[in-house]
């Protein structure tokens, strides 16, 4: 009886330990596997050439990623520019101004927004944002745009990262000890002064970390962006041009990538690049956030 108990205990422990080590290994395996797959492309074309050339002719063996890299940066920048101010204002409101009732009402709103699948955001974008840009915004500028554009991608992406940003920002603001804001109030500071000089100041590293985290989310978002950004392999020159971010490129070409030599490897390189960037961005911001969490909870 005693023996059986300790055997059970020991085998459970071993099973769990193996899973724990495997899960750490998994991260490394993904990186290595993608790199191995991407290696032929790097060997044939040279990494520098791949990253800086704008010529994309898979059938001719030309894989210049520059338009896709620029598209990714462009779309993500717009998304952050829209989402960050909205999220910051909302998070400050929820932390320092809103009543309990409003806070309780807001929690499911954020949950639902973050739960909506990318493909639904894509449908919504195609039905509303794309025609709006084509019919109302484009005519004021260059004139011709299908609406499937950098701007559409940026707007849809912004809506998608807002719940992530608001959720994390509220958490950061809530981790500020009440004694600290009380100290500011008891010196006669107004709420706005306390927000500006104490809350934001204290949270600055956290805000940066959260922004980096959502940038990396924006970099990797595929389906929704794919559905509204137009997917042109040409370099985008304005907000109203079509563009082609890296994830969309991978998703759109899976069908033919096995039939053209070198294509698969080039697309795997794209996936590898995404992985590395996300790894670094996530790693840095998570470390920052963990560090802050440790320092702030006492």
């Amino acid at each position: 009886m005693h023996r059986l108990r300790s055997i059970k205990e020991r085998s459970a422990r071993w099973f769990m330990r193996i899973i724990a080590y495997c899960s750490i290994l998994f991260l490394i395996i993904i990186g290595i596997a993608l790199f191995v797959k991407a290696f032929p492309a790097i060997k044939n074309n040279g990494l520098w050439e791949l990253l800086t050339s704008a010529r994309w002719r898979p059938s001719g063996g030309k894989f210049g990623f520059l338009p896709f890299i620029i598209s990714t940066l462009y779309v993500s920048a717009i998304a952050i520019a829209i989402a960050l101010p909205l999220s910051l204002l909302t998070a400050i409101y929820l932390n320092s101004y809103a009543s309990k009732g409003i806070r309780r009402f807001f929690a499911p709103v954020i949950d639902l927004l973050s739960g909506i699948p990318p493909v639904i955001y894509g449908v919504w974008g195609t039905i509303t944002i794309v025609p709006f840009i084509a019919n109302y915004i484009a005519p004021h500028f260059s004139g011709q745009s299908s609406g499937y554009s950098v701007m559409a991608g940026g707007i849809v992406l912004a809506v998608m990262i807002i719940p992530l940003l608001v959720g994390l920002l509220v958490e950061i603001f809530n981790s500020i000890p009440k004694e600290m804001t009380d100290a500011s109030f008891s010196l006669g500071a107004t709420k706005l002064q306390t927000v500006k000089r104490v809350i934001l100041r204290r949270s600055l590293p956290g805000i940066v970390a959260v922004t980096v985290l959502s940038v990396s989310r924006a970099f990797g978002e595929t389906m929704a962006v794919l559905m509204v950004c137009g997917n042109s392999t040409l370099m985008p020159h304005s907000l109203l041009d079509a563009c082609y971010p890296i994830p969309a490129l991978i998703a759109n070409n899976y069908g033919e990538m096995l039939s053209i030599p070198g294509y698969e490897s080039a697309l795997m390189l794209a996936a590898f690049l995404l992985f590395v960037i996300v790894f670094l961005f996530n790693g840095i911001s998570r470390l920052t956030l963990n560090h802050l969490e440790k320092r702030f909870h006492f």
Partner: peptide, 11 residues
Amino acid sequence: GLLAQHPCPLP
């Protein structure tokens, strides 16, 4: 002016 129980320097 209020002096709180635990000293709480601002950040």
